[in-house]
Structure formats: structure tokens, C-alpha cells
């Protein structure tokens, strides 16, 4: 499958990575090259094969319902590139969102 410029623009937007108009064409051919190479998988008959998401074969472990975390507001917001740590509490901030 080869991808075109519009597809690159669409997935770049889904991934929220800004891609300049001039980069779309080279990216499209680069990604097409990789996808074409990947498609050799179609040679494999997998009709009767269930997918495998994890190699781990132990059961999922459950945690007890105990409060043993949180209460670390300062650590949580310490690395925030922009924020409001006024006396109303410590918030992260983003450009205003209109819902």
C-alpha cells in the first residue's frame, strides 16, 4: 500500500505532529517504502492463527483498594512548562479550549 500526501497529512494530524506542506511528499514516499516492505507479511497464511498481544503468560495481578499514592501536588506539577501555582491550587494550563 502506498500512501499519498493527503494520507500523510491525515495521520500526522491524528498523531498531532505538525508537518510542513513541503515535507508531505518526501514523507509519503518514505512511509510507502516501509509499508511496501512490511507487506511481505501477506505471504504468511495466518487464517487459523489467533493474534498475540503479549508474551507474558502469568495472570494479571490485582492490587488491593488502598490509598497509598497521591498527595504529591508539588511533584506532579514540578515539570510543567506552563502552569498556575497560585494559592487556589496548582494547575496545569493549556491554551483556552472552547468546548
Amino acid at each position: 500500500m502506498s500512501v499519498d500526501k493527503a494520507t500523510v497529512a491525515r495521520i500526522a494530524h491524528l498523531a498531532r505532529i505538525g508537518v510542513g506542506e513541503d515535507e508531505l511528499e518526501p514523507l509519503a514516499s518514505e512511509l510507502s517504502g516501509i509499508l511496501n516492505w512490511i507487506e511481505q507479511l501477506n505471504e504468511v497464511d495466518t487464517d487459523a492463527v489467533p493474534p498475540m498481544a503479549s508474551v507474558h503468560d502469568e495472570a494479571l495481578r490485582w492490587r488491593a483498594d488502598v490509598i497509598n499514592d497521591g498527595g504529591k501536588q508539588a511533584d506532579v506539577v514540578a515539570n510543567a512548562p506552563d502552569g498556575d501555582q497560585n494559592n487556589d491550587g496548582a494547575f496545569f494550563t493549556v491554551p483556552k479550549v472552547i468546548e
Binding site: M1, I38, L41, V44, T46, V49, P51, M52
Partner: peptide, 14 residues
Amino acid sequence: AYYLKAQKVRRLIT
């Protein structure tokens, strides 16, 4: 076509 296929192949390799 891609992700699920790869997971199936992963099982075969394993």
C-alpha cells in the same frame, strides 16, 4: 491488515 496480521505472525514466530 497490519496490526492484527503482525500479532498473528508474532504468534507463529513464538
